[in-house]
């Protein structure tokens, strides 16, 4: 199939339009973060840097960002380990119940967040009777983050094949050495991509978090939900959203570059 020039141009235009719609709300957030109006009138009546100054002094917001980062780092670390283990098991071995295990990994993300949320809330409070807090959020997040790591790693394992690992074993390397020197380096960019997605997923999660956070723990989404409808806080929320999007360019860019570099090597 060779696309004609008009077809390519049409596709390109459609893509451009879609991207425009994707970025329109983000643009509104960006502009509103400078607006003198606190109730989102368009076009903004005037511009000010007041909210940007206030946002960086807002202790509640800064604490919430720190809490969310802490939760996301822990949940990502756990899901990286568990996701890698389960994808190695499913890709390199055949066993009874393999389909069931893969379904089990997908289930926490395939079932609506509210189901996962109340199920875990009920489990923590009435079955094992632990106080809700930071740790319960980490456990909940890690559970549904496993799948993003799993997907990336298993796709990579499938493409890698086993010949290099077999060669390594034939040359006398043990199980650990082969993993450290042969398997892991090939998985690195898949782990980075999966880990990034897991981090983003955890950092932004609100539904499961609402049900697994204790009274004293405020993650960033919980803080935003508390402040979104307060007139003097909404512009600060806009500032924080803009900062997050801008900061996120860095890790995404490096993950893409790493993936691109690996593709070139092949």
């Amino acid at each position: 199939m060779r696309l004609s020039r008009p077809a390519r141009i049409t596709l390109g235009t459609v893509t451009g339009l879609i991207l425009l719609v994707i970025y329109l709300p983000l643009l509104v957030v960006f502009v509103n973060s400078f607006s003198t109006s606190t109730n989102l009138t368009w076009p903004p009546p005037g511009f000010t840097l007041e909210w940007w100054g206030k946002a960086f002094q807002n202790q509640g917001a800064l604490d919430a960002i720190a809490t969310s980062a802490q939760v996301a780092v822990l949940a990502t670390a756990i899901s990286l380990v568990l996701g890698t283990l389960v994808s190695l098991a499913l890709q390199r071995h055949k066993f009874f119940g393999r389909d069931a295990v893969s379904l089990l990994v997908i289930l926490p993300i395939a079932l609506p967040g509210i189901v996962t949320g109340i199920a875990l809330n009920n489990f923590f409070r009435t079955i094992i009777d632990v106080r809700l807090g930071l740790l319960t959020i980490v456990i909940a997040h890690a559970t549904f983050c496993i799948v993003t790591v799993f997907n990336n790693v298993i796709a990579r394992l499938r493409r890698m094949g086993t010949s290099l690992e077999e060669a390594s074993a034939d040359l006398g390397a043990g199980v650990w050495t082969t993993f450290r020197l042969v398997t892991f380096p090939q998985l690195r960019s898949a782990l980075l991509a999966g880990g990034l997605l897991a981090f983003a997923l955890s950092f932004d999660e609100i539904i499961v978090t609402t049900f697994t956070a204790g009274a004293g723990v405020t993650t960033l989404p919980i803080w935003i939900l508390d402040n979104l409808f307060r007139p003097n806080q909404a512009p600060i929320v806009n500032v924080i959203a803009v900062v997050l999007v801008l900061v996120s360019i860095v890790p995404i860019y490096f993950a893409q570059r790493l993936a691109g570099a690996e593709q070139l090597q092949k």
Partner: peptide, 16 residues
């Protein structure tokens, strides 16, 4: 990239 902008902020942006 939009995945990193908070879900709530994006929903609120559509409200606006």
């Amino acid at each position: 990239m939009p995945l990193w902008a908070s879900y709530l902020v994006k929903a609120y942006a559509w409200r606006s």
